[in-house]
Design a binder for these strands. Sequence first.
DNA 1: TACAGTTTTGGAAGCGCTTCCAATTTTGGC
DNA 2: GCCAAAATTGGAAGCGCTTCCAAAACTGTA
Lengths: 335, 335
Amino acid sequence: MGMSNRPVTVDDVAKHAGVSTGTVSRVINNAPHVSGKARAAVERAIDQLGYVPNKTAQSLAGQRRGSVVLAISSDDPGLFANLFFAQVVTGVNAVVEETDLELQLVLAASDRGRARLSRIFRARAADGVMLLALKENDPLSALAESSGVPVVHGGRSLDSEPRYYVDADNRGGAREAVEYLISSGRRRIATITGGQDQHVGVARYLGYREAVVLAGLDDSRVAHADFSEAGGAAAMTSLLDRSPDLDAVFVASDAMAAGALSVLAARGIAVPSDVAVVGFNDIVTAQHTTPALTTVRQPIDALGREMTRMLLRLIDGDTPTSLILPTSLVVRESA
Amino acid sequence: MGMSNRPVTVDDVAKHAGVSTGTVSRVINNAPHVSGKARAAVERAIDQLGYVPNKTAQSLAGQRRGSVVLAISSDDPGLFANLFFAQVVTGVNAVVEETDLELQLVLAASDRGRARLSRIFRARAADGVMLLALKENDPLSALAESSGVPVVHGGRSLDSEPRYYVDADNRGGAREAVEYLISSGRRRIATITGGQDQHVGVARYLGYREAVVLAGLDDSRVAHADFSEAGGAAAMTSLLDRSPDLDAVFVASDAMAAGALSVLAARGIAVPSDVAVVGFNDIVTAQHTTPALTTVRQPIDALGREMTRMLLRLIDGDTPTSLILPTSLVVRESA
DNA sequence: TACAGTTTTGGAAGCGCTTCCAATTTTGGC
DNA sequence: GCCAAAATTGGAAGCGCTTCCAAAACTGTA
């Protein structure tokens, strides 16, 4: 059992099976043009010798890399980033696992990580790359494009729509959330937005406006924030000062919603009876806020899965179409 | 700029610089025995041609893989697992990034993942492997051992201590937590344990006993559970029924502590005035429980970092010693 | 200037596989 | 039982790099 020092090679297998290396290779890759007899002999030899193909050699000879990389460039060390990360990886892995590709991870927030990614593109050192949470206008995006390496983006950026991407339906989710508020009788609906320099920030704001305007309601109760809890609190304060009559607020992230809730609580405003609150993301703490937060959930593992499927198709030479994944409203107590 | 179809190779660089491929290789790997003149010429050529070495070819020729794998076999999809996961990866990446190794990820909870890992061992397809959260008595452990591939374990198992591992000081952390309870005047201290079929479960229980016995207190207030919130609740109930006089409880995980807290609240027992509660892990929700949970924090990213450092040393042929990382008590409101 | 010792260099032989081409064997139709 | 067509096979030529060895170019000293 593999006690020998020198690993078993195709030549050993060929010799042992009494065929040529070419035939062994054909069997390994179950290519056509192999007689049943030869195949059986080779398979027996492989078994007896405990042969495992050397992937490096396969790659070199076969002109493919045998690996895809998942690059995550979020430098946000926050809870959401972490969980998001883990779930995406899970989804990606589930699909990669079905192939015989390796999954390489690159955390591209640091300079070293970015350099690494750049090298991968320049050297075509992977069969494909999934790019997650790239900053707006990231130079890596252009490099990726020009390298010829298949690339799938997770999420979009404001400046330019990637050729291939998977994204959550941020606008639709926001719209649905607000429509829910409207259907439950709210009429003076405010919103706290995330950074308007990011696609998700804008998309969720647009979804809010769409719903509010369509219902013929006032869309002027807007406070811009930055996705942070503190920002959410500040925005809620400003909203309350400007429009004390509001009866609902759609908040573009759960973290901001948590900030908003604490301001509401501090002012003695009851949720949801006085003011209904809806968040976005469905982070874990959403269940633990007081009251538990009604929010919009993104299908994060599906995002990972679909990105990977798309990448595989791209590697196969297909031309997939970008995808927008539906969100779902999770109704708890706050609305 | 790389518009050519055929990628640039050492031969191109050699020709362009007027030297041999051997010399180019020596420059790339900055090996000795290269004149300044030759080095300069090669570097210029590399620059002008935009040459990036082909890692696959380097691996094949150099008899090294150029990659390490991080294998995670936890099939626990829970919050803690996710966050743990993300933090370990972050720590691992931080160290791997400093080398020119690639980081390959294998989720070994599924059969396919396990098969993949097995293949990696049998084919020596990585320079080293980090094994996280392997189940007790996992056959992969034996395979890893016999393969000759350097392996570092994260955490220990009950049945056999791995040759090289990094673990958190579960016993010490538990002991410190209980000593804190004692020092704040508690005398009738109970514990809710995690699964006693896992090393962490046993270690934390041992830490509890150590502290309690050393202080000459009664160590009989024990309820065994399974690290789950529901299990924690059930255990708390049983504890309260058996020993209504208890004035503190050390709970071996935050999830169980959350369950315990809800039981306490339901019975109208005030925390911490009537009963003090300490958890373990410092998951995010620990800050959001009512009251906020005092708990023991593990240095998870350090775990990742130290595992990686240890693996690198192993790959270099050194003989590191296993490591136990200190935990720290995070005092909040519940104790 | 010559010579032994040192450093640098070129070039070829792999690393373990795939793939192509030509050679061989098999097949099937008459 | 013969022949062309089809299927199978062996073997060699790479894939792009490292490394080893021998050859070449230096170095300094006598």
